[in-house]
Lab assay of single mutants.
Amino acid sequence: TIDDAFRAIERAIQAENEGRYREALKHFLDGGEMIVTAAEKEASQKVRNLLLHKGKEVLEWAEHLAEWILE
């Protein structure tokens, strides 16, 4: 659900702030994927587009974090 997705993102932010970057990455990926999944089930085109945009933002952040971890 969207609530689960945002809880995962909150955990990711907390982990990132505490320097637990790999854990943060996992939570960002989980949250982003949950948002995209919820968007695919959404009946309203406007809400679907907003959710897809937010999911994409979260997944892009996860990608940047992963690249930073690997440096």
Rank of each mutant, 00 (worst) to 15 (best):
T1Q: 06
I2Q: 01
D3M: 14
D3T: 13
D3F: 12
D4A: 07
A5N: 01
A5E: 07
F6S: 03
R7T: 06
R7P: 02
R7L: 07
A8E: 13
A8M: 15
I9N: 02
I9G: 03
E10Y: 06
E10V: 11
R11K: 13
R11F: 08
R11V: 04
R11Q: 11
R11Y: 06
R11P: 00
A12R: 00
A12Y: 03
A12N: 01
I13Y: 04
I13L: 07
Q14P: 00
A15P: 02
A15V: 03
E16H: 15
N17F: 11
N17C: 14
N17G: 08
E18W: 06
E18C: 11
E18G: 05
E18M: 07
Y21Q: 00
Y21G: 01
Y21S: 00
R22I: 13
E23P: 01
A24Q: 04
L25C: 08
L25I: 14
L25F: 04
L25K: 01
H27Y: 13
H27I: 04
F28D: 00
F28H: 00
F28Y: 14
L29R: 11
D30R: 13
D30Q: 14
D30M: 14
D30V: 12
D30L: 14
G31I: 14
G31W: 11
G31D: 02
M34R: 07
M34S: 05
M34L: 11
M34N: 02
I35Y: 07
I35G: 03
V36S: 06
V36A: 07
T37K: 15
T37D: 10
T37Q: 14
T37N: 11
A38L: 15
A38M: 14
A38P: 02
A39C: 12
E40D: 10
E40H: 14
K41V: 07
K41I: 07
K41L: 09
A43Q: 13
Q45C: 12
K46H: 14
V47W: 07
R48F: 06
R48D: 04
R48N: 03
R48T: 03
N49W: 06
L50E: 13
L51D: 01
L51K: 00
H53T: 13
H53G: 11
K54N: 03
K54G: 04
K54C: 15
G55E: 01
E57N: 06
V58T: 01
V58I: 13
W61T: 03
E63C: 14
H64Q: 09
L65P: 00
A66L: 14
A66D: 03
A66S: 06
E67S: 10
E67L: 08
E67A: 12
E67N: 13
W68T: 04
W68K: 08
W68A: 10
I69T: 01
E71Y: 08
E71G: 14
